[in-house]
């Protein structure tokens, strides 16, 4: 997944991150509408929509006959349930790529690059014993606070600032952020796990030996759109929906 997204985003590396985010959102919208087309019963949906349209028209035509309107309304409600049933299968199938895409976008577009102006905090959860002695100075970035050790829960925390997008503290097995161009994965921590963890949390690296996990709190990124701030997920939802609707019109998909 990481390589696929790196390739897809290659043309956008030198542009504002919003372009890459919008590109993936648009692609996802179009792709999801295609998946919807392939996995749904288009004929049944088409028939159902016509049926629902005719029931609605019937209600308008027979306004003077409340029993008829009620009957049609009841039919319309039932049709809605059937419609939702038709949507269920494609939606369940779409959920899988949706989660994977969202994870990738979260890893690439949800955080500001680590920099000297923003104080971030990291916590290391040790497996059995805490690294003793002075941890020394980081290779990249600056340690702002002393290291707090909470012996009972085998935790160590400190605050830091990054340098050119990264913070590297080899003594504690920490390698955060990214010095790669826009749209690359920004590492936020580490954890133990297999393929599922890698797919769902692409922002985490494999935890070093003796460490259960590493968590960091870094600056969230917002995008300025139409005079307000949008999180990456809002951008993704809105733009993928817009492109899904456009795709439905272009490819004549019955939704």
């Amino acid at each position: 997944m990481n390589t696929l997204f790196d390739l897809l985003l290659k043309p956008f590396q030198s542009l504002d991150p919003l372009w890459g985010l919008m590109w993936i959102s648009a692609l996802s919208g179009v792709m999801m509408i295609q998946v919807f087309k392939k996995t749904s019963d288009q004929q049944a949906i088409s028939m159902l929509r016509r049926k629902m349209g005719s029931r609605a028209l019937g209600m308008l035509l027979f306004l003077e006959s409340p029993p008829t309107v009620l009957k049609l309304a009841f039919g319309l409600i039932m049709d809605n349930f059937i419609y939702l049933w038709h949507l269920l299968k494609p939606m369940l199938i779409i959920t899988i790529p949706f989660i994977l895409i969202a994870a990738q976008l979260d890893a690439r577009y949800s955080r500001e690059p680590l920099n000297a102006d923003y104080l971030s905090t990291v916590t290391v959860y040790w497996e059995s014993s805490i690294l003793s002695g002075e941890p020394g100075e980081p290779e990249a970035g600056t340690l702002i606070s002393p290291v707090v050790t909470i012996a009972d829960s085998l935790e160590q925390s400190f605050s830091f600032t990054g340098s050119n997008g990264v913070f590297v503290f080899g003594a504690m097995g920490i390698d955060l952020g990214s010095s790669e161009p826009t749209g690359s994965i920004m590492i936020r921590g580490a954890e133990k796990g297999g393929i599922v963890q890698t797919l769902l949390h692409p922002w985490n690296m494999e935890a070093p030996a003796d460490i259960v996990k590493i968590e960091s709190f870094t600056q969230e990124k917002n995008y300025h759109i139409f005079g307000s701030r949008w999180g990456w997920f809002t951008v993704f939802l809105v733009f993928s929906s817009v492109w899904a609707i456009l795709g439905a019109v272009i490819f004549k998909v019955k939704v």
């Binding site: 905090t121 916590t123 606070s145 290291v147």
Partner: peptide, 14 residues
């Protein structure tokens, strides 16, 4: 180390 970690909701700072 004469330091404190302050946890509030999801945020932490040392």
């Amino acid at each position: 180390s004469k330091a404190v970690r302050i946890d509030m909701g999801d945020a932490s700072v040392v």
